[in-house]
Design a protein around this nucleic acid. Sequence first.
DNA 1: GCTCAAGCTTAAGATTTGCTTAAAATTCAC
DNA 2: GTGAATTTTAAGCAAATCTTAAGCTTGAGC
Lengths: 223, 223
Amino acid sequence: MRILVIEDEMGIANFLKEGLEEEAYAVDVAYDGTTGLQLATDNAGEYDIMLIDWMLPGVSGIEICRQLRKGGEQTPILMLTARDAVQDAVFALDMGVDDYIKKPFSFEELLARIRARLRNVKEENTNLKSKNLVMDTASHQVFLNKKEVSLTQKEFALLEFLLRNQNKVCSRTKIIHHVWDMHFDYDTSVIDVYINALRKKIDKNSEISFVQTIRGVGYIIRD
Amino acid sequence: MRILVIEDEMGIANFLKEGLEEEAYAVDVAYDGTTGLQLATDNAGEYDIMLIDWMLPGVSGIEICRQLRKGGEQTPILMLTARDAVQDAVFALDMGVDDYIKKPFSFEELLARIRARLRNVKEENTNLKSKNLVMDTASHQVFLNKKEVSLTQKEFALLEFLLRNQNKVCSRTKIIHHVWDMHFDYDTSVIDVYINALRKKIDKNSEISFVQTIRGVGYIIRD
DNA sequence: GCTCAAGCTTAAGATTTGCTTAAAATTCAC
DNA sequence: GTGAATTTTAAGCAAATCTTAAGCTTGAGC
């Protein structure tokens, strides 16, 4: 996950860089608008999110945003604004800013917002593992004991979701939200059917099921 | 964590209620502005966050917000707005809205925003401990002397509630309220039955019961 | 020690939940 | 367009879980 930070105040810029790197993000910093815009266009599509200060020497943050969007850049942009710049919010959103955060902000909140934005981005981490099962999300393959298992799209998506949430219970609601993208009341037994299908394919020889049921709560893959 | 939802569209309201409850929030819903404002003022300071729809029959969301703020209410307010109501954002922020989210929104993003707001309020913990017992709410597991104990949903919920209120007496009313979500007079002995079931599972070797009875008052877990 | 309410225990009946299967609907490849 | 693969719906079944209710035990107050 690569992040571009464009911020002229050294203190804040370094604080962000260090903090974010501690969270395992790869961080590039530009200390003025011109350099920032340059970096962003040179590495078009390379960043997963950009944090841009509104007030910048050279090219303003909002202008950077406008230009990037004009050039077809789709990376989420999170704008850092001064406390009382509420009026600007409307303008910012119109200019293609995805979210903004008022200074001074808590680092935790910033992280939360970054995560929220990144959630929509496909993870680059292409290998998911658990026990004797490996999933390669890039090539869309699943291996059980190093032998390939063929899964349908939905089976794959379901397994991927469960693997990404290893050791966390996945409620039916969450599963239907993420895997089926149904965001309203649902009344269906697709999940049961697919859990069943999955198990038939990946539980072949094992005693206990790979995907465990927690009655009344959901499903989970545990180490 | 208590959340007040004021939303007139039944579908969305119920979807929110169910989804949020699955995330272990206690959710109250009002389907119109008047009731919503009433609830909010009656339970002033009781909610940890409020989700309010902009467009409401009776009193509008923004008016609710204005009135609450005027009355000194400090609870974070998250406004749900129609897609193209960007212009209104300024106005909303001026009226004391803390954050807003455009419809249609992804449930995950909503959760992220709620969490971001609540982070300042209280830290959400996935691990609860007391003596030789550990509960992991994420994986829905309970360990007694590092050995897993299997609990049913209700047993788990009850134990979780008691653990979250360690060293505080939990009255039967509170328990029935939080764990069974019954908000009326009740006449049942479910609690007895479940306390009994719990004890059978987690008191195995110990002399004194893990969950202690305080006659006429309720139950308590002490360090 | 007696009484009575509160709490405990047990077991049966009701309900919910998840599993399985098969058939209908949809999508996809040719 | 046709047939195969995939996805969704539906229904019956089994089992786990939840609730109720009745009898039993305990402890506080007299």
